[in-house]
Design a protein around this nucleic acid. Structure first.
Lengths: 377, 377
DNA sequence: AGGTTATATGAATCCAACA
DNA sequence: GTGTTGGATTCATATAACC
């Protein structure tokens, strides 16, 4: 434990890009992630989101039952000689991450059973304090074609603070509102990244493991404030940067591959900060028959900034990023705010609130129905 | 890796209970789990299920918002000085588990984010091969009363074989049936153990972390055959034993606390084994003997010269006397020719090839089924 | 145009028996 | 050991093709 004390001050020679004084905000740094991290100032970043190589150790080819070939992750960046070399790599970048984080900052790391146990143990060894492990349940995972194991249908995220006593950021109310007035749990369901969100070039996916924006949306909304600085040392095609821009957070990306950087640069340039973004279709999660209003926001069916009114247009409210509503100084979930404004003990926000659609008012419940129709069999 | 070679033969003095030759089946061994494991024979057990202490680092007491006290896990057996001592303990019992397991046996370990990363890394370090990590989604988890984190709504199980090449047991069909004819995924939902299933004494729960029987039911059904021997080195109140008895598996439990042993003994005595017929139906239809296509020719069910086609009638082939097929200059087995004609890496000839029967096409697999019905008891 | 059917694909540690 | 052959094996979603 207690690595902080051991952090040595490096000579400027080892720094690569910027002097440590300045944070290269909203920028992608090209090159090795550890080298670039060493050039960043100590205790300067509010959050780190990291999607490191998983060290999959895949064997031969795999075919589907119909004979088609599975396009596996065979990239060089995922190859390591041994667990020992993977552990060294992990410890090195995590130690730098720890130095760069502010005392009250937090780190998120995503992985699978191939690597997450080693990552988690190293995180603990370095003195981080694990706050939660989060399970991303994939709505549409790839099946196990040979029937040899359980369908590998999830990935794991670790969320950790700098230490046991850290005063980390957790937007409890935002998460609860996003989840329809229930505490947000440690298991999240999202579809894998596909459709128009998936970056492609010449008909092929640009990056083999692009993460869904809905996942980063929830992570950033939960653990940062607007204006906070988020570092992603394995930037890839820039999901973290695109969502950070949408949510009004600052970002720094580190990435080796020029192809990924090009795609990320264009993608982030096209990303619209929240109040300008229009209804954009993302894939909708499936499974839970109960739909939280926040789910519609997360999935782009309701844009933050959208104005809702009651049927008689007596009240007006604005949708916020976490799916809560604001009316003057009053805020709350669709149900809670409806009750407050009417002075009623309770209120069904789904039927109380309406939005302008095709020239007339429509209850937001129709959006939920649309969502359910799109996601239920 | 390669810990098996390092296992030393211990003098009988270190053995506590039984000589290594005999397996103490359907028995609870009282005492230290590592000491008792050392007394068990090498390569003698089919499966190990382990629910080790979680190394929870709960600071102080925890109270609900209404002031009532949370009965947290603060028992003495859950205290460890540091990660280092927990790692030593973990490595010691896992190494013994590895020695005791048969070469094709598997191990299951359940834990939370407090310990599962250390356990998982050690499992990999010892040479085990992780098959899946499984998420137990709790339908009714304890909320996070302070609103400081996400509701900790799941626990993680690791399932691992002795090595990459092990021929472990996985009852694929049973799992698929259990899941309404869809592949069983890596995320399982069960309620936490409560109600009449939860063992109580004087109104208090006997064990702080009693696992639901549904969880063990799925584990044992997935990864063992009837009659297999299952060892649980942290037996607690004997969920593993009770379910093993119900499912016709043999079990061995190790437990230190007499209170738990008493509860487990009574509980297992009251558990009712499923009758043989219900056990049989849960078995996968894997034992069906192989039938060569040539056998059907030999038995006159298929006549040489018979014409076969695929379902879309794109290809035609003629059956030859030895059970091979011919299509122009291409010849081969039903599988090989199907693969060749489609340009596919492989092909199941039984379902690919069809024959004209009663005016419509029928897969030749129906002939095989007919043959099996006629020749099986 | 609108609705239906066929095809493509995703962080995957993916076979078993026998010669 | 290794090489060959038999034969068992897929779910949700997006997109293209086709009536």
């Amino acid at each position: 434990m207690g690595v902080l004390e051991k952090v040595r001050t490096r000579s400027p020679k080892t720094a690569m890009a910027e002097p440590r004084a300045a944070l290269p905000l909203d920028t992608i740094l090209q090159g090795d992630c550890i080298a670039h991290m060493r050039a960043l100032p100590t205790a300067s970043v509010d959050m780190i989101f990291a999607d490191p190589p998983y060290n999959l150790q895949l064997g031969g080819d795999l075919n589907r039952p119909d004979g088609s070939h599975v396009d596996a992750v065979t990239d060089e960046w995922d190859k390591f000689d041994s667990f020992a070399s993977y552990d060294r790599f992990t410890r090195d970048w995590l130690a730098e991450a720890r130095r760069i984080l502010k005392p009250d900052g937090t780190i998120w790391v995503i992985g699978s059973y191939h690597n997450i146990f080693r990552v988690g143990a190293t995180i603990q060894d370095l003195g981080f304090w694990i706050l939660n492990d989060i399970v991303w349940r994939k709505a549409n995972p790839m099946p196990n074609f040979r029937g040899t194991r359980f369908t590998n249908a999830h990935e794991t995220l670790i969320w950790a603070s700098m230490g046991e006593k850290s005063k980390y950021t957790f937007n409890y109310r935002s998460m609860k509102t996003l989840n329809d007035e229930l505490q947000m749990r440690s298991d999240w369901e999202f579809p894998i990244c596909g459709g128009p969100e998936r970056l492609k070039k010449d008909g092929h996916k640009v990056h083999p493991t692009q993460k869904p924006e809905a996942l980063l949306y929830r992570v950033l909304l939960a653990a940062t404030h607007p204006g906070d600085v988020v570092l992603d040392p394995f930037f890839g095609t820039g999901t973290t940067g695109a969502v950070a821009k949408r949510l009004g957070r600052r970002w720094i990306g580190i990435e080796r591959e020029g192809v990924y950087i090009d795609a990320a640069t264009q993608r982030i340039a096209e990303a619209l900060p929240l109040d300008e973004s229009s209804l954009r279709t993302m894939q909708a999660p499936k499974g839970t028959p109960r739909v939280a209003f926040g789910t519609l926001v997360e999935n782009g069916m309701v844009a933050p900034g959208m104005v809702l009114t009651d049927a008689k247009r007596r009240f007006q409210a604005v949708v916020r990023a976490d799916g809560s509503l604001a009316c003057g100084v009053e805020t709350g979930s669709i149900h809670k705010l409806g009750a407050t404004l009417q002075g009623a003990p309770s209120c069904n926000g789904w039927t109380f609130w309406h939005h302008e659609s095709e020239g007339r008012l429509q209850a937001i419940d129709t959006l939920r129905q649309t969502y359910l129709l799109a996601t239920q069999p």
